[in-house]
Nucleic acid binder design. Structure first.
Lengths: 136, 136
DNA sequence: TGCTTACTCTATTAAATCGATAGGGTAATA
DNA sequence: TATTACCCTATCGATTTAATAGAGTAAGCA
């Protein structure tokens, strides 16, 4: 299941992508427009800023804005920042690999075999979509 | 993230698929062979039986066994029984559809647009795999 | 300078889910 | 008829999620 964090983050990013130029948008405006709890959104935008996807400006007329062009922001990046691993199992994850404690032989594991295919096809989707593709 | 329930269920089903004929296999044997908590596995096998994927036999020499041929068991069925919805968001789910409370227009929702693609590609994988394909 | 605005950060909390465990009940078979 | 092994309910601790509260800080403007 997609977390609300990711859902809200995607909506916020999409909203920022529709803005003209790099004009900072206040958290309150984004929250209102997308029906998101403002405080919760605050923490999400913070992580997006720390990862380098967003910039922020303090004080009057401040807010958040996109740093890069939407078409230069692949969904793989966004999803990994917001949702974490794309794979459903750590043992097939590219960026968050971990060996299963209970599984003696990865190559012969049925779960591994299946989830590898799922990861690849999901990755395909995210690689073929940038933030620009999400804008209506 | 894939739940342990699904992971264990898949392993158990795969193990049963390697057995010759319809000989019942004891829970304890499956649990031991796949490194699964026996009690937890019990509840998983129970749901698989209730869904019609497995049959069981009580008393001495009893256990669980596959009802159908592994190649007639599509992964879509197994995954929906064990993990629930295949879609990451209810609003793009085929079997568990639900409208998002916060989203005014599905057709114009960026999350919807992206997750629809993910659902389709994941579904493709599950449709192209049967239990027989998971057996090493 | 001083005031306002709006981002920044920490802490807390309620609810839900997950994985696991315990213990007894019941049906089938040798 | 005793044993085996499935069947069912209840509980529990740990973790995660989503949301909230509140105080702190930097930037802009009069």
């Amino acid at each position: 299941m997609l977390s609300k964090k990711t859902k809200y983050g995607l909506k916020a990013l999409t909203f920022l992508a529709t803005q003209e130029g790099r004009v900072p948008v206040q958290i309150s405006e984004i929250a209102k427009h997308e029906n998101i709890s403002q405080k919760f959104l605050e923490s999400i935008l913070l992580t997006l800023r720390k990862t380098g996807l967003l910039g922020s400006k303090k004080g009057k007329g401040g807010g958040y804005y996109l740093i890069k062009d939407p078409k230069d922001i692949p969904m793989t990046t966004v999803m990994r920042v917001l949702e974490g691993p794309i794979a459903m199992v750590p043992c097939v994850s590219l960026n968050f690999y971990e060996k299963c404690a209970d599984c003696p032989d990865e190559a012969r594991c049925s779960v591994h075999k299946l989830m590898l295919q799922v990861r690849d096809s999901t990755l395909d989707v995210f690689r073929n979509n940038t933030l620009a593709d999400l804008v209506p």
